[in-house]
């Protein structure tokens, strides 16, 4: 793997930028194209890059399969939970207006929360699927 030093370093350098870009896409989704889903996919891209360069085992040590699986579930819970919170606060399901003192802020928080849910789930799911497909080849 030594000759792939360039790749490793490159990946190391690149990965944070990709993550940063993902976060930008996520949080800037209100103003420009993008949102939780796209950000999640970009995160997965960073993740795939790392797996390709460092190998499955190394990445799995940092991001254990159980963790990414849990991400998949937690994202859905976050999304659905937001709806339940608004319900408890007296609005209908996913009625964000009540999340803050005024409706507009409420909508902002709501959108942010559910987009975060999407991000987490998409990342978790795609990483899980990738682990399973990639892991399938080795254990044989």
């Amino acid at each position: 793997m030594r000759e792939e030093l360039v790749l490793r370093v490159g990946a190391k350098v690149l990965a944070p930028f990709i993550v940063a870009f993902a976060l930008y896409v996520h949080f800037h989704g209100d103003y420009s194209p993008g949102g939780g889903f796209q950000a999640g996919v970009i995160l997965v891209a960073a993740f795939v890059l790392l797996v390709l360069v460092y190998g499955l085992e190394a990445v799995q040590q940092v991001l254990p399969p159980r963790f990414v699986q849990a991400c998949a579930a937690v994202g859905v819970l976050l999304y659905a939970g937001t709806g339940i919170v608004t319900m408890l606060l007296g609005a209908n399901y996913l009625g964000y207006n009540v999340l803050a003192h005024d409706p507009e802020h409420g909508q902002h928080y709501g959108i942010l929360l559910v987009e975060a849910g999407v991000l987490i789930t998409v990342f978790g799911v795609m990483a899980t699927i990738f682990y399973h497909l990639a892991g399938r080849g080795r254990s044989e």
């Binding site: 209100d30 996913l94 849910g117």
Partner: peptide, 28 residues
């Protein structure tokens, strides 16, 4: 109503936020 310039995001996450929740569930 929402104060977000990207209408697609507004519709996706709020007006039709429930669809998106369904979408998330499909992925899950």
């Amino acid at each position: 109503e929402i104060g977000v310039p990207n209408v697609v995001t507004a519709v996706l996450a709020s007006y039709r936020g429930y669809d998106t929740m369904g979408e998330t569930t499909v992925v899950f």
